[in-house]
């Protein structure tokens, strides 16, 4: 009896490993070594052109004690991620539900709403965005017609510049919208029919059925968007370049400057590993909390 159990277990192990084999091969071949090397580099001084030199903890010490810009960009990135991600998810869920009905027009609208996400962080977007938020730009014109102050210099003020990037992030909600759309497709229609028979209204249906059934997808979007938010690079890099006074300087942009503009790959690696630590910690917390609010069919 005991023996049969181990046989089954061994078979299950084998099957599992066969299925994830592509990942294991790719991980060992292409990813594991670079990850280890970057960890090693974080303890060195490395200018890319010559061999790295071991400097112990000095990168980390400099980072935490004497580099003021490091903490500035860390705070900017935290603010950006924690503000833009919830707003973006809310927006994309609303739009996904609005366009749920299988009508032709909805398909067209969905394609249109997806366009900004295709544009990503292209140079075209950088130019357009500066134009929109310029003092004499479209945003101020609209505010003016609504009778609000219309002379705000969005890009030059330290308290407003970051919002231009947050608005951009929300505006590019296409990818989460798409994931929510496919998530909504998976909810069985009988659940709604049953609820309707019980006399539940739209709002009750949303909170009783849609939201719980969607939690795995919400969880995915949350984890993925937060990771992306922390690693955000292009919008800060191409639109504001971190200005004014580093108030839009994202962590990844500063890391990139260190690595390639100042040839301090060792320091950049140390920054990357600190980021990894923070993001991993956050992800672990999210996974731990998911037991309480994410509803899986499989336990």
């Amino acid at each position: 009896m005991q023996q049969r159990k181990t046989v089954i277990r061994r078979r299950e192990n084998l099957e599992g490993y066969l299925f994830i084999m592509p990942f294991i091969i790719g991980f060992l071949l292409f990813t594991a070594v670079p990850i280890c090397v970057s960890f090693y580099l974080s303890f060195t001084k490395y200018d890319i052109l010559s061999s790295p030199r071991w400097t112990g903890l000095s990168n980390y010490i400099k980072m935490f004690t004497s580099d003021r810009v490091f903490w500035t960009c860390f705070k900017v990135t935290l603010f950006y991620a924690f503000v833009s991600v919830p707003l973006k998810l809310f927006m994309s869920l609303m739009v996904a539900m609005l366009l749920m009905k299988p009508k032709l027009e909805n398909g067209i609208f969905r394609a249109i709403y997806y366009i900004p996400s295709i544009l990503g962080g292209s140079i075209a977007i950088a130019v357009v965005w500066c134009r929109l938020f310029a003092t004499d730009g479209a945003i101020n014109n609209i505010l003016g017609t609504l009778g609000l102050p219309d002379d705000i210099s969005w890009l030059s003020r330290t308290d407003t510049a970051i919002w231009t990037l947050i608005v951009l992030a929300i505006w590019q909600f296409g990818s989460s919208m798409l994931i929510f759309t496919s998530g909504l497709q998976q909810i069985p229609t009988e659940l709604y029919e049953a609820a309707r028979v019980d006399g539940a209204g739209k709002i009750v249906q949303f909170f009783r059925i849609t939201l719980p059934m969607l939690t795995p997808v919400i969880f995915f979007n949350l984890v993925q968007q937060l990771i992306n938010g922390f690693m955000a690079f292009t919008s800060s890099y191409v639109i504001t370049g971190g200005a004014p006074l580093n108030s839009t300087l994202f962590y990844s942009v500063y890391l990139y400057q260190q690595a390639f503009q100042f040839s301090k790959m060792g320091y950049a690696s140390a920054m990357a590993w600190f980021m990894l630590f923070v993001v991993a910690l956050m992800t672990i917390l999210l996974f731990k909390s998911s037991d309480r609010w994410v509803f899986y069919e499989t336990k």
Binding site: F27, T31, P34, I35, I227, A259, M265, M275, T283
Partner: peptide
């Protein structure tokens, strides 16, 4: 391990890769 690969900025793994 798989999640880890999503969290490390590509700038620092680019040269070893």
């Amino acid at each position: 391990c798989m999640l880890l690969t999503m969290m490390l900025p590509s700038q620092v793994t680019m040269i070893p890769k």
